[in-house]
Design a protein around this nucleic acid. Structure first.
Lengths: 158, 158
DNA sequence: TATTTTTGCTTGCACATACAAATATAACAT
DNA sequence: ATGTTATATTTGTATGTGCAAGCAAAAATA
């Protein structure tokens, strides 16, 4: 079996095994893809000491100053607790600040945050350019839409 | 802007913003999809105290007794260090065992591991069934192939 | 108005994952 | 044989993420 590709294994392995591996493969492959692309993202955003979710969050906050954690949670498809943690990190880096208003929390960009945003956007484009070059523009476009749609559908129904 | 869907934002936001968000969206959406599906997986595999990568690793070890960490690393698209950590966990649960042979390490399933594998496979199918029901069979089939291919391509070129 | 329920956000804890460095063995060159 | 380089695996450390629980404020109900 050594040196065989995944497809070959799928084709030659026993019946049940093939079925089970294949049917769950989206769980596997989705994570594999996420890790592969995140690696690219981390490299680009790492120049600012950010990871991709920091970058995305910062852009959202700059685009919508005063946005709430729950809104961010929906937009980024991340748990509220995760949002809190990300905001904490960005607060430490003085890129955003929090304002409590009753039980709500408003998140604003700091001047530094706003100043950094264009660079972050540039890095963002750079990430896109890199994986587009590897995967092909058309492919990426199509894949992105399908993947996003699937993520949304699962997010709603689950 | 409240209550708008992602597409609406994309369509109505300013030019550069649209471009940057969209071009990097695969980074974002791939992670979102991975998290959404992983949530399902964790629920199913959680019954055995496993996560999806534990489950996958166990199945591989049962299928190929004596497999090495580096081989697993390639198959699972995970770092060698991550493989070590996963194997440690499974070793604690007495599902696999390690044998050192020179600088190589051979990983074998324990009897308990082999006994558990069918159940894990069943859970595996269950995961597939659940997201197939939500996303649609055809969709899943197509998506899985595309996603896997993209992950592989990125894994090679990066 | 007082009590209950719901909502929004934050923590405690746990875990998968990765990078960089360490270790140990094998392969190779001289 | 000996010194060097390459390979395989493991650790130290850090981080993003989520669940369950906590907490505080708002809303609803009585």
């Amino acid at each position: 079996m050594k040196g065989m590709t995944e497809e070959q294994i799928l084709l030659t392995a026993g019946e049940e095994k093939t079925a089970s591996r294949f049917s769950a493969c989206l769980l596997f492959s989705a994570n594999a893809l996420a890790r592969a692309i995140t690696a690219i993202g981390d490299e680009e955003f790492g120049r600012f000491g950010l990871c991709y979710s920091h970058a995305y969050l910062l852009c959202e906050v700059v685009a919508q100053p005063g946005i709430s954690p729950s809104q961010l949670s929906e937009t980024l498809y991340l748990t509220p607790s995760t949002i809190t943690r990300l905001v904490e990190k960005l607060e430490l880096k003085r890129l955003v600040r929090r304002e409590s208003e009753g039980k709500k929390t408003l998140i604003f960009p700091t001047p530094e945050g706003e100043a950094l945003q264009p660079e972050v956007s540039k890095a963002w484009d750079q990430v896109g350019a890199r994986y587009s070059q590897i995967l092909g523009d058309t492919n990426v476009c199509q894949l992105t839409q399908q993947v996003l749609k699937a993520a949304k559908t699962l997010g709603e129904d689950f």
